[in-house]
Design a protein around this nucleic acid. Structure first.
Length: 578
RNA sequence: CGGGGCGUGGCGCAGUCUGGCAGCGCGUCAGCUUUGGGAGCUGAAAGUCGUGGGUUCGAAUCCCACCGCCCCGACCA
């Protein structure tokens, strides 16, 4: 393809809408354009790379034995009603009505549709195991779309669903997908981290996420450098350090006046103690029943953990009126002593003495509290988000680190929830009817594309892996008005096409500097420069984008040399990723 | 949904406070020169100043409403 006939609107200046490097580069390199918030058009170069990611995904799914299908993006709302997810998904689904007034949704995922397919056409264990997948546009009404393709209202996802008769089968299906994911991301030239994850609104058990570590990541990742434990922040456990026991803390507890001090910072400053010394008492409503939740003053409640510990269906912080009603004090002064509510405390508060709590009275707190002595009946559970520096939950000496990650893949086991809700069942070997065990596996295709750029770029532009570059080779004719130069470049272009190399030929009547800048920005893994200077010495220049390693070849031999170097690049990249 | 900010040729912005010819840089088009890291000169095209209403002799500028976009936050005592 000739540059003069492609559509590559590169931008010299940085568009103001973009915040993170990958987003800026996708706009500047002419890969995408924004239509409105969270909605993007793929331009020719962006689409070429996107198709390459999809192709890798398909090849690895097929290799793992999954079967490609294509389900409707538009779905009747009632199937979501049947699994209880119409409410559970909250506002993330786009709701529309057809002309008959039937309620429809644009699918953010496809568990319901897949399960109904199985209910229709899978009757016997003999038809199992089966894993279906599709590559499809998904819709989510994001509260706040941002970072280009990273969090968009419309995005392309590969989603796969497995069906098995027994646990051993699910384990095998899950492992096959997990292994396929490792290969997919390696081939995309991504370094990923596999972390334990929470199953969230999906329901289910084992769950792992593939994270691309990046500053701009929207997910927290906790890991232990000693033993390799790694988990999504929402799921991660940790051992917070014990509360410091201060001098004279063993005396009887007493109320002190703390006028106006209601936040942890205010109280800590007023009493001249560290926030660690405080115990926060939060009033939650678990299925509308109030419960007191105690956590260290410098920690935050992980509501997912809390909900699980309480076995609650619905969980929310109590509103101001309710807090006054159950504690007798305004917000900010709740404490466990004398509070007649079920109480649940974080594990790290076991044996806490000498701490500060609210006094259940306006403008008062209680000091020298010994939870075991003063707080009445307390249950303990892991309720908080871990922090960097906490002890590792899996090994003795490890100290946890906290990093940011972009979730590009997610695998998990769903159990029988959907099959039961939608009436899917199969006959097992003994002739008994039972719901199949499901697994579900997603790859954010558009997000993966952007994650690659986020991980592989420099000040000049994108450093595409050869496997994903829109064109792996950029051929620059440095002076189109010089007959010899143009002839040599034309000949090499023809030779590269004959050699089966995907090449973009910059044949524009531009100065060399413009072509070099654009080539760096667009990020051809190999850049071939044909100029008068080189030709006078009988060579063209071949330069590797990522490393800057440059060599030269006679024009006649260049096509073959380029082909060889490209093959080496692809091999090296997927080895690095794996 | 709450808070903040922004909407002015394709892109980036100034002009708005203090009303009085709609500007700058980049890009685009034409010509000449130039050709190994975003060239120089000359000329040109291109703007309902987000939309609607109001105030005024006169509105990009002041007032009201709406729309769009960006950022932060969304109940942590």
């Amino acid at each position: 393809m000739r540059w003069s006939r492609q559509f590559i609107p590169t931008l010299r200046e940085v568009p103001q809408e973009a915040e993170i490097p990958s987003h800026r580069l996708m706009l500047r390199a002419g890969l995408i354009r924004r239509l409105s918030g969270g909605l993007y058009t793929f331009l020719p170069l962006g689409l070429r790379s996107l198709r390459k990611v999809e192709q890798i995904v398909r090849e690895e799914m097929d290799r793992a034995g999954a079967l490609e299908i294509l389900m409707p993006a538009l779905q009747p709302a009632d199937i979501w009603q049947r699994t209880g997810r119409l409410e559970a998904m909250g506002g993330v689904m786009f709701h529309i009505r057809d002309r008959q007034g039937r309620a429809m949704v644009l699918g953010p995922t496809h568990e319901e549709v897949t399960t109904l397919l199985a209910a229709q056409d899978i009757d016997s264990y003999r038809q199992l195991p089966r894993t279906f997948y599709q590559v499809q546009t998904k819709f989510r009404d994001e509260i706040r779309p941002r970072f280009g393709l990273m969090r968009a209202k419309e995005f392309i996802m590969k989603d796969a669903y497995s069906f098995d008769v027994d646990e051993a089968g699910v384990d095998a299906s899950y492992e096959a997908m997990r292994a396929a994911y490792v290969r997919i991301f390696a081939r995309c030239g991504l370094r990923t981290r596999v972390v334990e994850a929470d199953t969230g609104a999906m329901g289910g058990r084992d769950s792992q996420e593939f994270m691309v570590l990046a500053e701009a990541g929207e997910d927290g990742v906790i890991d232990c450098p000693d033993c390799g434990y790694a988990a999504n922040l929402e799921r991660a456990e940790g051992r917070p350090p014990a509360l410091p026991v201060v001098e004279g803390a063993d005396g009887p507890s007493a109320e002190v006046e703390t006028p106006g001090a209601r936040t942890v910072e205010q109280v800590a400053a007023f009493l001249e103690v560290s926030p660690r010394q405080l115990v926060k008492t939060l009033i939650y409503l678990a299925d509308d029943r109030p419960v007191a939740v105690l956590v260290p003053g410098d920690r935050e409640v992980n509501e997912i953990k809390l909900q699980r510990a309480l076995g609650a269906g619905r969980l929310a912080l109590a509103d101001e009126a309710r807090i006054v009603e159950v504690t007798g004090a305004p917000v900010g002064f709740a404490g466990p002593a004398g509070l007649d509510l079920p109480k649940l405390a974080d594990e790290s508060l076991r044996g806490a003495r000498g701490c500060v709590t609210g006094a259940n009275r306006a403008d008062a707190h209680r000091v020298r509290v010994d939870l075991a002595r003063d707080a009445g009946a307390l249950a303990y559970a892991d309720l908080v988000f871990p922090c960097a520096g906490d002890g590792c939950p899996r090994c003795a000496d490890g100290r946890l680190r906290e990093e940011r990650g972009i979730e590009v893949g997610h695998v998990f086991k769903l159990g029988t929830k959907y099959a039961e809700a939608l009436g899917a069942s199969v006959l097992d070997e003994g002739g008994r009817r039972r719901p199949p065990l499901m697994g579900c596996y997603g790859v954010g295709v558009t997000r993966t594309l952007q994650a690659v750029i986020e991980q592989r770029h420099d000040a000049q532009g994108i450093c595409w892996p050869a496997a994903l570059a829109p064109y792996p080779v950029g051929l620059l004719c440095l002076n189109t008005r010089d007959a010899a130069c143009a002839a040599a470049a034309d000949a090499l272009y023809a030779a590269l096409i004959d050699a089966g190399v995907e090449v973009l030929y910059d044949d524009r009547d531009e100065r060399p500097g413009v072509k070099f800048k654009d080539a760096d920005l667009v990020g051809f893994p190999l850049r071939v420069a044909v100029g008068e200077r080189g030709l006078s010495r009988g060579v063209v220049e071949i330069r590797e984008r990522a490393t800057g390693v440059t060599d030269e070849a006679p024009p006649e031999a260049a096509a073959e040399r380029i082909r060889t170097r490209l093959a080496e690049l692809v091999a090296k990249e997927s080895a690095d990723g794996a």
